[in-house]
Write a protein that binds this DNA or RNA. Sequence first.
DNA 1: CGGGCCGTTGACACAAATCAATGTCCGTGG
DNA 2: CCACGGACATTGATTTGTGTCAACGGCCCG
Lengths: 253, 253
Amino acid sequence: MSQGAHACDTGVFQVLTKRKPDLQLFLNRLTSRSVLSEREKNAVLDLPGDTMLIPEGNDFIRLRETVEHTSLILHGLIARFDRNQNGHRQITALHIRGDMPDLHTVAQPRATCALHTLSFATILRVPHSALRNAAAAHPGISQALWRDTIVDSTILAQWVLNVGRRGSQARIAHLLCEMATRYGVCQPNEVSFRLPMTYEQLADTTGLTPVHVVRTLNALKQSGTTFENGMVRIKDWTTMIEIAEFDQAYLQV
Amino acid sequence: MSQGAHACDTGVFQVLTKRKPDLQLFLNRLTSRSVLSEREKNAVLDLPGDTMLIPEGNDFIRLRETVEHTSLILHGLIARFDRNQNGHRQITALHIRGDMPDLHTVAQPRATCALHTLSFATILRVPHSALRNAAAAHPGISQALWRDTIVDSTILAQWVLNVGRRGSQARIAHLLCEMATRYGVCQPNEVSFRLPMTYEQLADTTGLTPVHVVRTLNALKQSGTTFENGMVRIKDWTTMIEIAEFDQAYLQV
DNA sequence: CGGGCCGTTGACACAAATCAATGTCCGTGG
DNA sequence: CCACGGACATTGATTTGTGTCAACGGCCCG
């Protein structure tokens, strides 16, 4: 992992690694929702890209910045966010391994929201030009990328409903259920997974304040769900789904 | 307009009209953000479709329904919405003339949210198959549709910020500024336009209650903005932008 | 050892929801 | 033509959920 390491600006490191296994992750994501031909699959695996290591707490894409790469998350948790004029932050999306948090910049290179690493992250930066060419040459890839954008946007619509019309318990519970489902760890009984976020970040995601997140999580303990040190433990998935008003259909899994 | 009219289920009427001028509207929308070749432009204008007349207050696409058409709005205002378990409604998008509120169903035919006419509406129903074929044959069209989806999703992200992190005045003001900009009626001085919504619908859009919308609009009157009988009148666009924390960049106009 | 950052708790303030009553408009049916 | 009912607008009184402020404790890291 240390051969050819090369320092960038703010603690971000670029390393040279084999890309194929990394791109396989992306290919799996695409084929889980779309059908690709063999030629198209190979085109995906042949995409160019640089691997970057980014420390926790780094705003590696800033608002209004023009970018020429898309980031494929190989490891870590990343938040897309925006701010209001008081400087209060709202996280508008969470992205995990296999996601492309800034896929939309391919069609709209000026970033309309910023990206922030909630944990240490490894990212494969794929040039826009390569993605655009692959999409132009292969209708299947084009449609797969489009479909990915659509799932993203469906999640956003759910978040609007969540923040706009649910109380604090349902709001946080819904977020936890969504992340459990996206991580693929949910099962009838006990569910647990790492979600490396602070209370403040949870608050910025749900449109609450950190203090109130604490109170709400205390209330959720009554139903057997705990969040401690970035570890979520859901004792009873069924009742949690009920509290959260959660229906996984929108995630297309 | 009455030749060949043909009744459907709930007061929805289908009429046979010339499609080309209608599709020109769609083409204009696409070319305002993307570049298409002459062949691609013609392919758009040659899309098939039925014109439908839909009365006000009609849920013409319901949750979980599987659809095989996409709706191009020729006239009217349409809301995309979802409900929480108390039955409280949250409007997640507003769509105007030239929009395709259910473009995403091309890649994901089972509706993840419902559509409701806020006014009488005219719609051109374009079969998914035709759009898919056009996209597969013409990379430019494919990218234009993708870009349209992305703008939609950018608006959603702004709505999350709006509902999550802004007070009621800024929230409503932001919505009014967004709609003024999308209607293309904003100018330095007085701005006015029709927005055929009730207080309840405004409330469902902003995550507030109808009573509080009334109070908030009363407060906004102090700044010279009124909303009466579906008519928005903004005396001073500059101060309204300030109250709304509005920056039109995200709309890509 | 000391200074942040984060978590935690309590007291209090306030914005928005809820409840309630009344008014207005409009379409419908007697 | 008028009486009626329903949907929407409007206002006031009251409650409540959430925000704000403040203090303290633990923990990590320099």
